[in-house]
Design a protein around this nucleic acid. Structure first.
Lengths: 342, 342
DNA sequence: TTGACATATGTAACTAGTTTCATCAACCTT
DNA sequence: AAGGTTGATGAAACTAGTTACATATGTCAA
């Protein structure tokens, strides 16, 4: 009672192991970190003690010395869109291979929330950050600059950005989609997209469309990125007197919603209107009709981002930007338009 | 050069602040933790120094003393199913209100992976765990018992479980669904469910069905929990000579997949076959036809789990199990069956 | 005016690791 | 056999905080 009560034994620490093995704490630390320099005989004795006491080195104590906390933070707009969930899943998988944990923070696409959560992550010792898009608040950039924390921008490619970007060329991806519809003979095209406020991905996609559209009719509808948002956009488009012969949605979730919206209004896809998405969710291949779309390699993006961040952290060398190729996936929701064909 | 190079200034620490403010480290620590006991004059001086040096206390150093790391881990099967993504989103939102960070770990429904990742989380200092379902490996339970770490089971209610469970009565939820189909006059019912291996949620749902079905025909199809899995199950069911007049899917994702599968085979829902889900995803309300289902309050479950875990951690008092009510959501994918009606 | 007590602050020990430097023995060289 | 090198280990200082205890003041009552 006076000194220690062995009954309420806490987690064993280095000293306990050292005492049990009859060595100094330095030796135990060496067994943990550079077992090569310890004599085989001693090594085994210490390892036995470690196993018997079920010793696990305290991550906090390690962090205090090495400055390495072994976790990174990901700031993503939402988990409600499958595209981010898929990205995160790949990210987490790859990071855990490198012995890094992932702390998830959602921003609801609010720059202030993002800055606040980014600061929180840095304060608790995140070794790196994964962020979505290149549009962030001054506070955020200030934080990155001050702390010089490795931060990678994803979902967005721009090799002139001061931070490394790993993503696709959103502009090109949108153009790929629009070009396909044009190639099919569509002229009156409605575009449905998510909120543009502070969203550079959507903005880039839209700008791509405008530079392709030339003299064509291109009406745009902004809606929430969700099935419901898509369905509502569809209702709006159908109620319009001047119906389009194709609808291009700048994300698959929205396209699926539009599909449902059109179905509920009795419009057949693709016979009466062609429909195209952009993302290529697993769902899109299964929908009826299956959705023509542009494949964005989100899982690959997760893996590449994780690798790049892990390497950045360990080597201190800022990685290069990486462009991931988007590619057209032709399926059954688009059909040739014969009316306007010459 | 001999001592310190002020040019490469690291993060300021307690000592730096103490020196700048002309007080001892203890006083700075007090300013941080119990500002009430510090004289107003001194308090302001220290706070000024903190602000000027942009001092942020090291979470690691705090953790080493207090044992508090301020993060918890969530072990979920996958992020690919929207239901878990929604759960996580709510969990993260609520935890961050309590100043707790969330480390996400996916298990791919593999008990060994789960045990390994759980150990990893505990080793790095997680203060609590959120796990899915009550079926876990011996290794996992051993870990929980040894470390006595607060761990909450979700998606599953069972007030006899040694760990607190916060979830719904899966058995009752499935019965609610089946009863609805029966009430509508359906007799030949096909059940589509996800993998049963190590999945107590699915198992419970199935057991609920068997205790209701009595003399009714109840064929079951196991498939992957995804739209594709659902579509494949639909193909299988349709190819069977003895077609059901209703299909009950034990998760909404699968139901949506079945819907697509039926559509691609030219079967009309609900005219030719009633379709029912279980989960109530946002998508289900938007699908055409909208999906009759049983609502499971996942967001609420995330909030309740987060609160309970936060409280458990701070008070050391194990929370009680919580049952969240499932409720029937009648929509347009089910219709009265007149053939078998008396 | 002295003792009692509260208030405010400092000193130093403590948390659990890593790391530098010193020590000592063993082996090799000349 | 003296000196140099290498290998293995330990003592103690160090990381960045918290906290128990000591001390210095100030206020008030007897």
């Amino acid at each position: 009672m006076t000194q220690k009560d062995p009954a309420l034994k806490k987690r064993a620490n280095l000293r306990d192991v050292a005492k049990a093995a009859g060595v100094s704490v330095a030796t135990v630390s060496r067994v943990l970190n550079e077992p090569g320099v310890v004599k085989k005989d001693t090594l085994e004795r210490v390892q036995k003690a470690i196993a018997e006491l079920r010793f696990v080195p305290s991550a906090a104590a390690r962090a205090i010395n090495s400055g390495r906390t072994r976790f990174v933070g990901a700031l993503i707009p939402t988990l409600d869109n499958a595209i981010f969930a898929r990205f995160l899943a790949a990210l987490e998988r790859r990071l855990s291979e490198d012995g890094l944990s992932l702390i998830v923070a959602t921003t609801e696409s609010d720059l202030d929330v993002e800055a606040k959560k980014a600061k929180g992550l840095v304060d608790i010792g995140a070794e790196g950050l994964i962020v979505t898009g290149a549009t962030h608040g001054a506070e955020f950039y200030d934080l990155i600059e001050r702390t010089m924390i490795p931060a990678i921008i994803t979902s967005y490619f721009d090799d002139t950005n001061p931070l490394p970007t790993i993503g696709y060329d959103n502009k090109a991806a949108a153009q790929l989609a629009l070009q396909h519809l044009i190639d099919l003979g569509h002229r009156r095209i409605a575009v449905v997209h998510g909120p543009v406020h502070n969203n550079d991905r959507t903005l880039a996609r839209l700008s791509g469309l405008h530079s392709v559209h030339k003299n064509r009719e291109l009406t745009t509808v902004e809606t929430e990125i969700s099935l419901r948002g898509g369905a509502e956009a569809a209702a709006k488009i159908v109620s319009n007197s001047n119906k389009p012969d194709a609808i291009l949605c700048l994300s698959d979730v929205v396209a699926l919603g539009v599909l449902f919206g059109l179905q509920s209004k009795g419009l057949r896809v693709p016979d009466e209107v062609s429909l195209m998405g952009l993302d290529d969710l697993p769902s899109s291949a299964v929908a009826v009709p299956s959705l023509t779309t542009v494949h964005l390699p989100v899982s690959r993006m997760g893996e590449r981002s994780a690798s790049a961040l892990a390497r950045w952290i360990s080597t201190q060398k800022r990685p290069e930007a990486e462009k991931l190729e988007a590619r057209l996936i032709k399926r059954n929701s688009t059909i040739r338009n014969t009316v306007f064909n010459t």
